[in-house]
Amino acid sequence: MMKRLGVRTALALCAMFAVHAPAFAQSGQRFALLVEGAPGDQAHADLQRRLLTSLKARFSDDYKLDKDHLIVLASTPEGGEGKATAIDVKSALARFTAAVKPLDTLFVLLLGHGNWDGTDAKFNLVGPDLTAGQWAELLGPAQGKVVFVNTTPASSPFIKALAAPNRIVITATDQPGQKFDTVFADAFVQALGAPTADLDKDSRISMWEAFAYASRVVRQTYEQKGLMQPEHAVLDDDGDGTGRQATGEGKDGTLASVTFVDAVIASRPADPELQQMVQKQEQLLLQLDALKKRKAQMKPEEYQPAWEALIIELATVSRDVRARLKDPKAASADPTN
């Protein structure tokens, strides 16, 4: 679709010299396990395959994960994929958790069905299933950050079971009894590539942005059909095992806001003039950040002009950077600067 192609172009162009203000944004290596569980029938198999293919392309082509860092398990595996069985899941996680170091990030994304028997929530695999508790055990050894997204029905118990420090857990439902097919899976996959999901327009989609966007798509889908919304996705990232909805109250969201699937590209331009411009961009962003922190202590009539001056300057420099990127021979577009 045109929309998706447009996104890729935009991401590629802007990410080159986008300045990612938060210094605590993730660095290190990225690992991902994508699991498409037992579909039940052909219609679900088709849908799940479509989503898995899209996700796989997103992680390998757009996010450029190393081949060795991406494991795809499917109900009906295609080239390079493994079988979505408990054994294969255990093996994949054993490999990844051993490899994931403190600054690394491991993404686990589940597509398919789940169920809740009153005691345990399970993700349905081909053959024996794994309970939320078993997934937690399997992830236990990982030293780095874990992003775990369960898009299935009855997924909410995974929040409590998997919650831990430095871990983001997202589930499609907030009630274990919600056993109907979810819209969230499709919505979350869309979110990872939707330019609109990029709330701060930094050309990257954080886990929080993807979660918020997907939650919105879910709500709209039900609203447009005139149906009650049975599924409400929740996110936990402070490790307390209590998730929050995107539009609800809650302490969660900070870690997810600075967690991205794509990598920071830290390369510097060779063009010295462009280098200066980019440095200026970075400085201005830091100044903006500092100003924001002082906002509470400042009078509005002091803060606002200072903020406006910085934002105008940043806009000007950024425009020049863009112009320079388009035409490396171009001088500053605005001679007044």
């Binding site: 802007c14 986008a18 300045v19 709330l199 701060d200 327009k201 930094d202 050309s203 962003l285 903006l288 934002i311 105008i312 940043l314 806009a315 000007t316 950024s318 425009r319 863009r322 605005d334 007044t336």
Partner: peptide, 18 residues
């Protein structure tokens, strides 16, 4: 909302005559 949003930056510069 988004200090690095290029479209908004261009809009601002156009609105203030830059």
């Amino acid at each position: 909302q988004a200090p690095t949003f290029a479209r908004a930056q261009d809009l601002l510069l156009a609105a203030i005559g830059k």
